[in-house]
Design a protein around this nucleic acid. Structure first.
Lengths: 207, 207
DNA sequence: GTCTATATTAAGATAGAC
DNA sequence: GTCTATCTTAATATAGAC
């Protein structure tokens, strides 16, 4: 898999322009809201020229979406069963928050797809994603059993990490509206808060 | 405000049917994805008949959206400055989670609107919502200062509560796919988890 | 108030010249 | 590979009879 067909330099460049433009438009408007016209304008190509590279709007969308999925799952995979439990989980939170800050378009595209019922990626969710979550859940349960982290529900821990980190990208308009900000400075406070939140929860009490 | 125009019983009934059908369709498809046809079918009315009650698709959407906003903000307002700080905040989390379970369509409609940049409710966010958040932030800061809750960032605390609770409605497909469930039984575990999470974080240490 | 029929526009996609 | 022109469909909205 992932075998790239040989392409001329101009083909490569145009495909990249299109996919980048498509990410802009799809993440801002959703699949139905986006138009080929908008994408073509953003990619600085004519509409028929764009359709020379991709057979349909759907094809562009699927390509953007699938190219995004691996990046999206990588951080979870990176949790190391040999590392310090609390630092591993906090590191995961930190990486997810960085993704939220540096790739907000990807986050919103993904959010939009899930919100619509995940018609194109339900297989990925019930396949690879679920397997990886199950794997980490088992790890967290071992850590709990050994008293390395407190005994919390590992599924809901993961859901809460996804929710709290992606919130800053997906609900960006609301966050910025309330904080009266246009830049990314608040991500520093967000990180501090989330580190405190999860450290307080994961650190075993008593003993 | 909220002055209802006098209407016949049949008008009342049909308006309600339309608004309920519209909530179904808009929350599942988004504004652009939804069609008047779908709404008309769901409301069991003909398309022209539906347009006899509302002048346009946009008008239906705005009505649904604005009727939702008050309900959405009420729980925050309900936090009582005279109550026990930790129990007040945990109660807020619980009420938000109940909203997520009992009104997932409303949550998804709201999420969709924010995701699109909140074109129709930015005023509400930067007006009433921001004022109420500022108010509760001040309250949380007082509670922190008096040692009633630990010294965390109150803005990010509120964001995290919104994120973790609404996640179960907005990302429902993903949550259910991973938990292999079709019902709402997991909300019990979610509540347990969130109570533990926020109690651990809010309870002042040391002293 | 409700219907059938239809006008109008927007958007996805294709034909065919260059 | 890129363009202009155009086909086709779907969707919003309206006209006008009943």
């Amino acid at each position: 898999m992932n075998v790239e067909k040989p392409r001329t330099r101009i083909q490569q460049k145009n495909r990249e322009r299109i996919l980048n433009a498509a990410l802009d438009v799809f993440s801002a408007e959703g699949f139905r809201g986006a138009t080929i016209d908008q994408i073509a304008i953003a990619a600085e190509l004519s509409k028929p020229n764009l359709l020379y590279y991709f057979p349909s709007k759907e094809a562009i969308y699927t390509e953007v979406l699938s190219s995004l999925l691996t990046t999206w799952l990588d951080p979870l995979q990176a949790i190391d069963s040999q590392g310090d439990p609390i630092e591993e989980i906090l590191g995961y939170v930190r990486r997810k928050l960085e993704l939220s800050r540096d790739f907000p378009r990807e986050s919103r595209l993904f959010a939009n797809e899930i919100l619509r019922g995940a018609p194109r990626i339900l297989d990925q969710i019930e396949g690879p994603l679920r397997r990886m979550v199950d794997d980490k859940v088992a790890l967290f349960q071992n850590w709990s059993r050994d008293g390395k982290i407190s005994p919390i529900d590992p599924f809901h821990l993961i859901f809460s990490i996804w929710a709290t980190t992606q919130h800053y990208a997906d609900f960006s308009v609301q966050v910025r509206g309330i904080l009266r900000t246009n830049d990314d400075a608040h991500y520093v406070d967000a990180e501090d808060f989330l580190m405190t939140l999860y450290r307080a929860t994961l650190t075993p009490r008593g003993n």
